[in-house]
């Protein structure tokens, strides 16, 4: 009897692991259905954690999306190996981010209420802060770049529009003209970005 139960338990565990492994491998390939499953599955735990620790619905949503993005980006890197459950990973990242945000706001009173086991994530082992610095510097550089360069570069590099579409949208006479303009903008962006980013590196 107990043998039977044990075998069932083993099977269930296997099924669980299997499904999580499936999801991870699907995510690695950028499957959006897998992303949806994960996203919907783990949000309640994070919402609970944030709300119990001085946060709002909106805080929970922002943080959770950031954590899912980090997970997604990590899984897209071939050499990254997820050593814990997805839930634990997301919870640990959210916890770290929320701790940081509370400290910035001066609302940290020395203790968080925890509901899950979590990885300590000290020393920026996931490169979260490095990433934030990069993207933050880029956002600032883009701001300083001003229009029309900003829209032009974002449309081309971020939104993936073709030079032809951009020329039409922005009112350039032809695609070549727009292309010329784009490279001028890129030179300026490069200058602005590396000024910022190097400052951060110091």
């Amino acid at each position: 009897m107990s043998k039977f139960l044990l075998s069932i338990k083993a099977q269930m565990n296997e099924a669980l692991q299997h499904s999580e492994a499936d999801i991870i491998s699907a995510l690695r390939q950028g499957d959006s259905k897998a992303l949806e499953i994960i996203y919907k599955q783990h949000y309640p735990a994070i919402l609970h954690f944030i709300v119990q620790n001085n946060g709002t619905d909106q805080d929970a949503k922002d943080l959770y999306q950031e954590a899912v993005i980090i997970l997604y980006e990590k899984l897209r890197q071939e050499h990254f190996l997820l050593t814990c459950q997805i839930k634990t990973f997301l919870y640990s990242v959210c916890r770290k981010l929320w701790l940081k945000r509370l400290r910035e706001k001066g609302k940290y009173f020395g203790k968080l209420e925890d509901f899950e086991s979590f990885l300590p994530l000290e020393e920026d082992e996931l490169g979260i802060e490095e990433n934030e610095q990069k993207l933050g510097s880029m956002a600032i550089a883009m701001e300083q770049l001003g229009e029309p360069c900003r829209t032009l570069l974002i449309d081309f590099y971020v939104r993936g529009l073709s030079m032809q579409d951009i020329a039409e949208k922005m009112g350039y006479t032809n695609a070549d003209n727009a292309k010329n303009q784009k490279y001028k903008c890129l030179v300026r962006l490069k200058k602005l970005f590396f000024e910022k980013y190097k400052k951060f590196e110091l």
């Binding site: 919402l47 949503k61 999306q65 990069k134 993207l135 590099y157 962006l189 970005f193």
Partner: peptide, 30 residues
């Protein structure tokens, strides 16, 4: 530089997707 821009692009896309998913999660609003 291009890597960062690509990352930005990917993030923007992910966020749009997740915002769609999130509409189904409104029932969790406290």
């Amino acid at each position: 530089l291009l890597e960062i821009l690509a990352q930005m692009a990917q993030r923007e896309q992910l966020k749009a997707q997740m915002n769609l998913f999130h509409k189904d999660l409104d029932k969790y609003k406290a």
